[in-house]
Design a protein around this nucleic acid. Structure first.
Length: 468
RNA sequence: GCUCCCUUCGUCUAGAGGCCUAGGACAUGGCCCUCUCAAGGCCAGUACACGGGUUCGAAUCCCGUAGGGAGCGCCA
């Protein structure tokens, strides 16, 4: 049997990390078993669905590399099929027209709640044989009255629901359009979905879906309900705590494979391993090992995972991502060796590519602005004197490489009888404007001889005009 | 209100009756390394929600309590 999974978001909001994680689980499960992964857009709510939201889903999935083998399917284009199944159910007496008004239903609900009962439709239109004039009816599914439905959940184990807890749900609105639970069931069976992996907020819907599937003569798929992701504060995911479009993480300089790695570890583990490649995940991930409890989103750990991936990723790849981030800062470059050199020097100093771009400005442009505090600390007194020695030594340097610069600096340190720090820091401030950078020899090599000498001159001027 | 789900360090997790004086990771603190900052290494503190059982023995099994979440829509 070929495994077929699906990701079925509704384009009514943004695609955030909670959705991404269930998509990832579905995708990994399909990939692991050599199956197919289907993307289906559940847009039957025409009021709230938007084309922008659809685009965000598509872009997000693409950025993450969660490629689908089929689709995207749109439920709004399958109305004919739903109508067909609706008619069939009606003809077989497995569904019926209900003429109750919204007011009737509301009244019923409040009365039941007042009696401390679970609000549910009482089935009063079940036996009705004639229409009510002037009322457009909804269609309800005739749910079994007794017995149990057992959901054999891959993560929760068996979950038992009593049929008398369920009621006759509406499967078509009075305007004829089908509703969510009904469309899902028709789609999952039409698309031959073998494993439904979704958020556990759907666990309660599952017995109804199973009943409908059976009424239609279909075999229910296997289900796996995974917990939702909580905000960093342990409360429901909010705007402030990660409920932002997944593309936000791209803008913030995260690597998609790092985000996926972080997300898969929420509720799943493999020994003590923290960092996984996508290839490893498709080999190791197992939906039945996923935890049942919800887990909180931890931005700090995401940052760490991202850096770990940056430290392992190929330089040319990272150079490309850094280039995009630099573009956002108005820095445009195609100097691939320079980009790769920056990445090599900065990737263990930055948690994201965005941060890397921001702290790498001094590799570009002719001049650099000297940070006042750093300048006062390192470009005065002995530091100022060091600037002159640096200037002449570096001007005379023929081997303009990290090793060459390093040799020149140690020579100066030895001659001056000071530690390397007394040489490196003034140079660092002169070249970068700050007291922090990758190893100064590599930094100088990357910046290049011309600009190094010019910046040393500028630093001398700064020290004089700063009047310190 | 009713039904369903969940509960190990601050956070993510390991743990499927003795291997647990509960392991790893992020974060935090200290030390080492060191041209800065990082990265890396070493060390430290912090957890089985609570109460009953079952058992020679329970984080692990059972029951209850508490807390959290979800569903109960002509939303998905």
């Amino acid at each position: 049997m070929t495994i077929v999974t699906r990701f079925a978001p509704s384009p009514t909001g943004l695609l955030h990390i909670g959705g991404v994680r269930t998509a990832l689980f579905s995708w990994l499960f399909a990939r692991r078993h050599g199956g197919r992964f289907i993307l289906r857009v559940e847009d039957t709510d025409r009021e709230r669905s938007t084309q922008e939201a659809v685009q965000v889903i598509l872009d997000g999935m693409q950025w993450l590399g969660l490629s689908h083998d089929e689709g995207p399917y749109y439920q709004t284009r399958r109305f004919e099929r739903y109508a067909e199944v609706l008619q069939q159910l009606l003809a077989q007496g497995k569904a019926y027209h209900c003429y109750c008004s919204k007011d009737d239903l509301e009244e019923m609900r409040t009365a039941q709640l007042a009696r401390k009962q679970k609000p549910r439709y009482d089935g009063r239109c079940r036996g009705r044989s004639s229409p009510v004039a002037g009322v457009a009816p909804v269609i309800r599914f005739k749910n079994p009255l007794d017995g149990d439905v057992i959901v054999e959940d891959l993560v929760h184990g068996p979950v038992v629901f009593r049929n008398d807890e369920l009621d006759d749900l509406i499967i078509a609105r009075s305007d004829g359009t089908p509703t969510y639970n009904f469309c899902v069931v028709v789609d999952d069976s039409d698309m031959h979905i073998t494993h439904v992996i979704r958020g556990d907020d759907h666990l309660n819907n599952t017995p109804r879906q199973i009943n409908m599937l059976r009424a239609m003569g279909f075999t229910p798929p296997a289900y796996a309900h995974v917990a939702m992701i909580l905000g960093a504060d342990g409360a429901k995911l909010s705007k402030r705590h990660g409920a932002v479009s997944v593309l936000h993480y791209r803008e913030e300089g995260y690597l998609p494979e790092a985000l996926l790695n972080y997300l898969v570890r929420l509720g799943w583990s493999h020994g003590d391993q923290e960092i996984f490649t996508l290839e490893e995940l498709t080999r190791l991930f197992d939906i039945t090992e996923v935890n049942k409890a919800a887990s909180a989103f931890n931005p700090e750990k995401l940052l760490w995972v991202n850096q770990q991936h940056m430290m392992r990723a190929p330089l040319p790849y990272l150079a490309g991502v850094l280039r995009e981030q630099l573009l956002r800062l108005g820095i445009e470059t195609d100097d691939q060796p320079l980009l790769e050199g920056i990445v090599a020097g900065q990737r263990e100093r930055a948690k994201t590519l965005k941060e890397m771009a921001e702290t790498s400005r001094y590799f570009f442009g002719a001049e650099v602005e000297i940070d006042d505090k750093s300048g006062r600390k390192h470009l005065t007194g002995a530091g100022l004197a060091m600037l002159g020695r640096l200037r002449s030594a570096l001007e005379a340097l023929t081997d303009w490489s990290a090793a060459g610069v390093h040799g020149a600096l140690t020579a100066i340190a030895t001659e001056s009888g000071v530690g390397l720090g007394k040489v490196a820091q003034p140079l660092r401030v002169a070249l970068t404007g700050t007291a922090v950078s990758p190893p100064i020899d590599a930094t100088a090599a990357l910046i290049g001889r011309e600009r190094v000498l010019r910046r040393l001159d500028a630093a001398l001027v700064w020290a004089q005009t700063a009047g310190v």
